[in-house]
Design a protein around this nucleic acid. Structure first.
Lengths: 163, 163
DNA sequence: CGTGAAAAATGTTTCGG
DNA sequence: CCGAAACATTTTTCACG
């Protein structure tokens, strides 16, 4: 189930469009067109292509965790015992399946995984960590840090030039 | 520059809407309405309110870092020397202003900040860390982990019930 | 690739319950 | 608050330069 064709590098127009929609994807084609001096159909065509080429991965509403009852953000670094492929896949899947795991990175360094959790309170956190780490059997050590302030939370990416 | 009114708890309809738009906010009002058994105007009104109440923080396109030339993701934990308010604000602002800093959390524990960087290559990473940490004068220690795999990268939040 | 205009789809407002 | 219908805007499609 294949990737899309990834030919056609991004030109300045594309970068400009991307730069705008990654801030607000409800911007109308007309507004985009005006800002970058292109016609509306041209913008529409480019957007369509950027989406089908998976340059734009998805279009989403970002919610306020505080406002939907998940005021607690936690960062957990996890070291595992056994790095055999199967064991690794197992625990990876475990993280993927867990709703409270917002982000998960497999990293180099003195730890193996880095997780970002979003939960309601410490009680939920403890239940979670117990089921994710203690019951897993493959976790050597985990260290939890509580986020006191989410200074910056972005999915935005710096684009080449775009003057 | 006030917060919004935060009255009115979310009912099941709201949660259902949020659950859908946080996966895809280009879903049409009609489609939303059909899925949750509500009329189109009702959905529109609710969405509008969720946005003005900042339950929905923003609406964005999420880009593929690999496809726009930032294949490297790094996680950096930073310990600072001086936690006086002014110093803290200064370095916080520094992180905020840096495009490559995608996420920044101020945390408890054996480290003070946790940063997520998105860069083109190691050379850019080194330039960045130098300017952010070494030239800052207030950084005691920083430790960089390279993400070998972005297992899960979500901004989605678990919502109360929503059956 | 741009333009312009028409057609289709979507979003918004009005108003009576 | 809801929903039906009228209304406004946006998106898409197309023929042509």
């Amino acid at each position: 189930m294949g990737k899309q064709r990834m030919n056609s590098r991004l030109d300045d127009f594309d970068c400009h469009i991307l730069d705008m929609v990654q801030r607000n994807n409800l911007t109308t084609h007309r507004e985009l067109a005006d800002h970058i001096n292109l016609s509306v159909p041209a913008v529409a065509r480019r957007l369509q292509k950027l989406r089908s080429d998976c340059v734009i991965a998805k279009d989403i509403s970002v919610l306020n965790p505080e406002r939907v009852g998940n005021p607690l953000t936690l960062i957990v670094s996890v070291s595992i015992e056994n790095e055999a492929v199967e064991q690794l896949n197992a625990i990876t899947q475990r993280f993927l399946d867990c709703h409270q795991v917002q982000q998960c990175y497999y990293v180099t360094g003195d730890t193996d995984f880095l997780l970002m959790l979003s939960v309601y309170d410490m009680e939920e956190c403890q239940r979670l960590t117990r089921s994710l780490f203690l019951d897993s059997g493959n976790v050597k050590r985990f260290r939890t840090a509580v986020s006191m302030r989410r200074v910056k939370v972005s999915m935005a990416v710096t684009l080449p030039r775009t003057p």
